[in-house]
Design a protein around this nucleic acid. Structure first.
Length: 189
DNA sequence: CTTTCGATGATCT
DNA sequence: GATCATCGAAAGG
């Protein structure tokens, strides 16, 4: 793993979630720029790692830089980046990308031509990149995945996390300011 | 525009 | 049996 990525992922989920905005994520050359993330910390009642290690969340307690993939509402797949120290259970939920590469492939997978709806939400993002349970535990800096650093530091806004019932007050959602490709409800401009 | 609701399966109580 | 880090279609204003 590059020193730059390792340094980002070594930090808390909050810091890693903020720092991952602007990076480009690809699977098999298909994907785009990360424009929205959420942090899930250890001792965070909203995190899947909160109850401790189980079969589902085992990847969360493994090495940083791996993908933790889980099924949401029995219908969708959602993808996280494991971060902080191995064994802590910290992770960053990937919530939205700005589509950049493989647009036609993603449009086909998502069955929509609207670029704003290709990767705007964790379930949509996973479907567009063809991420599922088989990718759980995969290293994000090794094929078929690539993670590329932004050229300059992006302008990031924060807000409450989406879709959770517990610890709703923690402002651990991060998004690229003004992006047209974030999920709803839209963060403040 | 906004709100409501069904789908569908693993996990938890 | 209830809950859930979601989405899209349908119904309501």
């Amino acid at each position: 793993m590059s020193p730059e990525l390792a340094a980002i992922l070594a930090r808390s989920a909050r810091d890693a979630a903020r720092a991952l905005v602007g990076w480009t994520l690809l699977k098999d050359g298909v994907g785009g720029v990360v424009v929205e993330t959420e942090a899930y910390e250890p001792d965070d009642p909203a995190s899947h790692s909160f109850p401790g290690p189980t079969r589902r969340n085992a990847t969360m307690f493994g090495p940083p830089g791996r993908l933790y993939v889980y099924r949401s509402y029995g219908v969708h797949w959602c993808a996280n980046v494991v971060c902080s120290e191995e064994g802590t259970g910290a992770a960053v939920l990937l919530r939205a990308l700005e589509p950049v590469a493989g647009l036609e492939v993603m449009q086909e997978r998502r069955r929509t031509a609207d670029l704003r709806l290709l990767c705007a939400g964790p379930g949509r993002l996973a479907e567009a990149l063809d991420i599922s349970d088989v990718d759980d535990g995969a290293a994000l800096d090794q094929p078929p995945f690539e993670l590329h650093a932004p050229r300059s530091s992006p302008d990031v806004v924060t807000g409450p996390r989406v879709g959770i019932r517990r610890a709703v007050e923690r402002p651990w959602r991060f998004a690229l300011r003004g992006s047209d490709f974030v999920s709803r409800p839209r963060p403040r401009a």
